[in-house]
Nucleic acid binder design. Structure first.
Lengths: 110, 110
DNA sequence: CCTATTTATTGTAATATTGCAATAAAACAA
DNA sequence: TTGTTTTATTGCAATATTACAATAAATAGG
């Protein structure tokens, strides 16, 4: 035990869950927001912006990358990270669909 | 170690992360989608819908409730669960804002 | 070549999560 | 009351996550 039973759920459910899990940590939300705030994609200074050690941030970046939320390309000595628009779009649509569905529904309890 | 350093991040970052973490599991996504699919809020049959044991589902429901994503009211023997619209709205706005911000931004790399 | 800079990896300790059997608790029906 | 139904809690084993020191790898500038 201790392992998530991913095989019992649909590919879409697993994909959404993977992305949300990757964002389910304040450090990774902070990274996302920092990538938003900075105009350029060049982001060699994430470490100095966050209150975490360099290996920890490297690990968080890896998780965001594995979940498909950010992209990274080598830019000389530094690495250029930026948000993958398509992934954010998927999440935006997902929650918009649910919110719209709830709005059109008559709540008879709760 | 092993504990998330929540105190180093903003209240908003922690709140978003908490909600997304709660949804970062396929079973809990499946629960959310089932609550959407069912017209009524009365949901005593979540257990028979999902491929997990009753205590496991009870635990997942508790986590969704703790994160403020669902509400539950006692309805006789059963319990009536339903999605908290406001929480979904918060997430919808969060991702819409990011998506819109990305769209208006000129990408010069990646 | 050597040295500095930047990011990744490895290893490890502390803690959290996942899943379920067993059991408890709460509410209804007879 | 007793039994049934439904959900919650407890306890536990297996696994995953978080954080970081130490170290490695890769690149740029001399």
């Amino acid at each position: 035990m201790g392992t998530t039973k991913t095989e019992h759920f649909s590919a879409n459910q697993n994909q959404i869950a993977t992305m949300l899990k990757a964002l389910g940590h304040p450090a990774r939300i902070a990274i996302l927001e920092f990538l938003m705030k900075v105009d350029s994609c060049i982001c060699g200074d994430i470490v100095s912006e966050l209150p975490l050690a360099q290996p920890t941030i490297s690990q968080h970046l890896k998780e965001l990358k594995n979940a498909g939320l950010i992209k990274g390309t080598i830019e000389g000595t530094a690495i250029c990270y930026c948000i993958d628009e398509k992934a954010i779009e998927v999440l935006k649509v997902y929650f918009s669909t649910i919110a719209d569905g709830l709005e059109s529904k008559q709540k008879n309890c709760c």
